[in-house]
Design a protein around this nucleic acid. Structure first.
Length: 563
RNA sequence: GGCAACGUAGCUCAGCGGCAGAGCGGGCGCUUCAUAAGCGCUAGGUCACAGGUUCGAAUCCUGUCGUUGCCA
């Protein structure tokens, strides 16, 4: 009996390239999970898309003097290239700028409105008389009433870190033209989230498999009492409120972005699957939706979106798990786009192997706490663990068969010790499966690396390079055993290292795609001809990599740094 | 300011009531099939700090300091 597993992944703002933080935080764990479940024979639907409507996009558009849509189109295209290069295996990566997404987001609004869950309220909104437009909080600068810092923004003061209301600012001015904003009273819709606090707490009761930090945070948040929130904003970029006389208001970007998980599923069903109803299998009572996000997004995925699903009705499936990751730091500091303190995916892919990055980020994934990426560590892990332990086990075995057995899989049966090792290999497959299914990706990779080490140890103990001289049969038994271990490793590592696992699949003389080969350690048959082996991974030149990357880091930074 | 999490070996991280662990790096040795790769042995720690609970605390509780996220 196979499960229907929806893999819903955070929607990146289309206002800049992807960096390592995005990958380690959400996209890599989601992809490992998706590939694993496909190999196990489950029905996977993995979706996400570009968030087109966030403030960061309009900010960048105004800075460059182009339209928000142009910014969105440029970076959405870049995302697609990054996914391709990194092997992130979407069923659909769409965008919030589709007609389909507008329709479904407006349908949610209409449903909520008709159910009486949206009510009007008046609030004071900053308005620029010179620009003849309403201003988001971030578009207002002024003096902080708490610390006197002059560059405080309408939402937060960078001087003292306090969050602000734009009306508190002393001497407020628009960042667009420096003009003084006035505050106008505007009607907006509030969503009755407060009605769902108890139901959410009830729903959380059997979520003991969630990560403690996610569950504790969510429970604590709800126990303080869930408040109603403004559902609409005064913007001209975004999805219009579908009510007569309200067309100049937009649905708040966060509330339509989470609807994207559903609208992307619907789009996949009609446009890719060719069966408009096919999405229901992943949203019905027995579906298991997993949401892969970073820790800054927990509230929206464990509270707001489940509340919206409850409010919508139709028994749409609530999250099975929200394995939010913590953050990845870089060389001791937080990632920062403005200071160019980041490793950008397109630049990485221009110089290095995608599997090497997937390996290093998986080995050090921020599952339980913030973790650290450094280039020296990247080089060490690639050269010593990926190349030295795993790649070399494969290479020494395959070149040995090529050299001493004419590239033909020997016809021999493992002896007692070999049979024991192969049993360990089978056990490792199940052990890793349990770890991955529970979203413990670091641990799953650890199982694979331990098995590779066992393989190396076995080779050293049985020394086929000595046996080949006096007892060819013994050497053959050893090699067949290790071939079985390598076959298991190729499967075990396929979710983590899809490109090299496919190459290894072919080097073992096996046909087709590894993703269709199942979760088994089945290797080549006796007598099978193996192609000339190639190294799975290249060693890195430490000096060269460090020279290039350390020079890149922070380059182009025009602000003062204290580091 | 409130809530939540984190602080463990030189580095990156596990462990989360019962003799302080792994990988990498360091030291010593073995091996030569292999991308100078592999294997074994070894050194190293007041488990942030101060109290408390317990026969027993890195682990549970309280407080302090530091880091992070969310909220005000």
């Amino acid at each position: 009996m196979s499960d229907n597993i929806l893999i819903a992944v955070a929607w990146p703002y289309a206002n800049g390239d992807l960096h390592l933080g995005h990958i380690a935080g959400a996209y890599l764990p989601a992809d490992i999970f998706a590939r694993f479940h496909r190999m196990r024979g489950n029905n996977v639907l993995m979706v996400s898309g570009s968030d087109a409507h966030g403030t960061p996009i309009t900010l960048r558009a105004e800075a460059e003097g182009v339209s928000p849509r142009e910014i969105h189109d440029r970076f959405h295209k870049g995302f697609l290239e990054s996914w391709e290069g990194l092997g992130i295996s979407w069923d659909l990566f769409t965008t919030t700028e589709t007609e389909n997404h507008y329709r479904i987001s407006q349908d949610f609004f209409t449903r909520f409105y008709e159910k009486g869950l949206l009510y009007e309220t008046a609030s004071e909104v900053p308005y620029s008389p010179t620009g003849k437009r309403y201003l988001p909080d971030r578009y207002i600068n002024g003096t902080c009433p708490h610390c006197g810092f002059d560059g405080a923004r309408g939402d937060q003061c960078d001087g003292c870190g306090r969050t602000l209301d734009p009306r508190e600012l002393i001497n407020p001015r628009s960042t667009l033209d420096g003009g003084t904003p006035e505050f106008r009273t505007r009607s907006h819709f509030m969503m009755k989230f407060s009605e769902y606090g108890d139901s959410l707490l009830e729903w959380l009761k059997d979520k003991n498999h969630w990560r403690p930090q996610v569950l504790n945070f969510t429970t604590g948040f709800l126990e303080q009492g869930l408040k109603d929130r403004a559902y609409t904003r005064d913007l001209d970029w975004g999805i219009p409120v579908p009510l007569d006389g309200w067309e100049d208001r937009r649905i708040y970007v966060w509330f339509e972005a989470v609807i994207g998980y559903l609208s992307a599923s619907v789009e996949w069903a009609s446009d890719i699957k060719g069966d408009p109803e096919a999405w229901r299998a992943w949203w019905g009572a027995d579906a298991k939706p997993y949401y892969f996000i970073g820790k800054d997004n927990i509230t929206f995925h464990t509270i707001i979106w489940p509340a919206m699903l409850m409010a919508y009705g139709d028994d749409l499936a609530l999250p099975e798990d929200v394995p939010a990751n913590e953050f990845l730091n870089l060389e001791g500091y937080q990632l920062s786009t403005s200071r160019n303190w980041a490793v950008w995916v397109p630049e990485y892919l221009a110089n290095y192997d995608p599997d090497a990055l997937r390996f290093v980020l998986s080995a050090n994934m921020p599952e339980t706490s913030d973790s650290e990426f450094t280039w020296p560590d990247y080089i060490r892990r690639v050269n010593n663990e990926l190349v030295g332990t795993y790649g070399n086990l494969v290479h020494r075995t395959l070149t040995f068969i090529q050299r001493f057995f004419d590239g033909t899989v020997p016809d021999a049966k493992p002896d007692e010790a070999g049979t024991r090792l192969l049993a360990k290999g089978d056990a490792a497959l199940e052990e890793a499966a349990a770890e991955i299914a529970a979203c413990r990706f670091r641990a799953g990779l650890g199982v694979a690396m331990s098995l590779a080490q066992e393989g190396n140890r076995y080779l050293d103990e049985h020394a086929p390079w000595r046996a080949i001289r006096e007892d060819r049969e013994d050497a053959a038994r050893t090699l067949v055993t290790i071939l079985g271990i390598i076959s298991g490793l190729k499967t075990l590592l396929a979710p983590y290292l899809p490109f090299s696992s496919q190459r290894l699949h072919e080097m073992l003389g096996l046909e087709g795609g590894i993703q269709d080969a199942g979760w088994t350690a089945t290797g080549p048959e006796a007598g099978a001809r193996l192609p000339q082996p190639q190294a799975l991974f290249a060693k890195l030149d430490e000096e060269q990599v460090l020279a290039r990357e350390m020079a890149n880091l922070g380059a182009g930074d025009e602000s003062e740094t204290t580091a």
